[in-house]
């Protein structure tokens, strides 16, 4: 089976203006939340996107979903049989109608459900916005999707306050799936959950992918979760990708020093293994004022003069393994 692209992102830039105070405060600079990122997500695959807070990973997801406007670049949605569609050209009604194809599962299952609506109304909302069918048809569809997400009919009458975090997240998933999207962004969707619930929700997401062939962009800071669900993994640092490869390669043969640092910093549940994180000094730089050259050079133990001066190319170091580091080969 040849991989067909579904989402294609080219040179995506999202810059937020930093304004001075008051009515006439001018733009004093830009936060380069996402700065020139390109990637492709194939149909039915999961791209895991990892990075520390402030790396811009959430912004990438929101830009594709058109929850915020990209500053520059191309976002292409390859429709089944209807050819590519430029997402950035969608406006007004056509954008609203197209939203059924791409959905978001949030991080906080408490904030993302309107506490004043019943579960039925929450799940039905995308359908009602689409004027998808009669009330009866919508009810049937809601019941079907709720069942897939392991919610029972009785639950639909209740309000969100009746549910635990894990159950709420199932409601969020049901809402995301009800309109039959092809692409779902999971933005830290399991990080607020307890371990056992997290495992259950991840399994549910995987089952739904197997059944309906969803394509996921799975944004997380927890590498062990990403390891389980992703086909490929992209590592992001201060608005740019530093490494992109199939999951196995990222986890067993990381090439970028930042990826290595991230991996070693995860405490593993194995007391016999020495916890000796690859020490990263300092903290993630401010994206409003990113470092020159390679953005990681301020914290990288291998940085030299070249890293400081020259931005490394985004290059394929190995089959389907991209990295942005001057010294990737040397460091092995």
């Amino acid at each position: 089976m040849t991989a067909q692209p579904l989402i294609e992102v080219q040179n995506l830039k999202v810059h937020f203006p930093v304004r001075g105070k008051g009515l006439f405060g001018g733009v004093s600079g830009y936060v380069r939340a996402v700065d020139d990122v390109s990637f492709v997500i194939n149909r039915g695959e999961t791209l895991g996107l990892v990075g520390e807070s402030g790396s811009g990973k959430t912004t990438v997801g929101r830009a594709i979903l058109r929850a915020l406007d990209a500053t520059d670049g191309q976002l292409t949605f390859h429709r089944n049989g209807a050819g590519p569609l430029d997402l950035r050209m969608l406006k007004g009604d056509s954008l609203r109608k197209f939203r059924r194809n791409m959905q978001l599962v949030f991080q906080d299952p408490y904030a993302s459900l309107n506490p004043r609506m019943t579960v039925r109304d929450i799940i039905a909302e995308p359908l009602e916005c689409l004027k998808w069918g009669t009330r009866q048809e919508i009810d049937d569809r809601v019941r079907e999707v709720a069942g897939k997400c392991k919610l029972n009919v009785e639950h639909l009458r209740r309000f969100p306050h009746a549910f635990s975090g894990g159950q709420r997240q199932r409601i969020c998933i049901a809402r995301a799936l009800v309109s039959g999207p092809q692409f779902v962004v999971c933005d830290e969707s399991v990080s607020a959950l307890d371990v056992s619930t997290q495992a259950e929700i991840l399994n549910l997401l995987m089952d739904l992918q197997d059944e309906f062939g969803f394509t996921y962009l799975f944004i997380a800071h927890d590498l062990s979760v990403v390891a389980q669900v992703s086909t490929r993994v992209a590592v992001m640092y201060v608005g740019r990708f530093v490494e992109w490869a199939p999951t196995r390669k990222i986890f067993f043969n990381p090439r970028h020093p930042y990826t290595k640092a991230l991996l070693s910093a995860v405490p593993v549940v194995d007391p016999s293994r020495e916890f000796n994180p690859f020490k990263l000094s300092g903290e993630i730089p401010n994206p409003a004022d990113p470092p020159s050259g390679c953005r990681f050079h301020t914290r990288c133990p291998h940085a030299d003069g070249r890293c400081k001066a020259e931005m490394p190319d985004w290059r394929e170091i190995d089959g389907e393994h991209f990295v942005a580091c001057h010294h990737a080969e040397r460091l092995g």
């Binding site: 495992a199 062990s224 389980q228």
Partner: peptide, 23 residues
């Protein structure tokens, strides 16, 4: 159950073992 539910980085399994049921 808690230990089994934790995703591991050295075994890429795609399936996790949750503790059944809700707290």
């Amino acid at each position: 159950g808690l230990l089994q539910a934790i995703p591991r980085m050295d075994v890429l399994s795609r399936r996790l073992t949750p503790v059944p049921g809700d707290i």
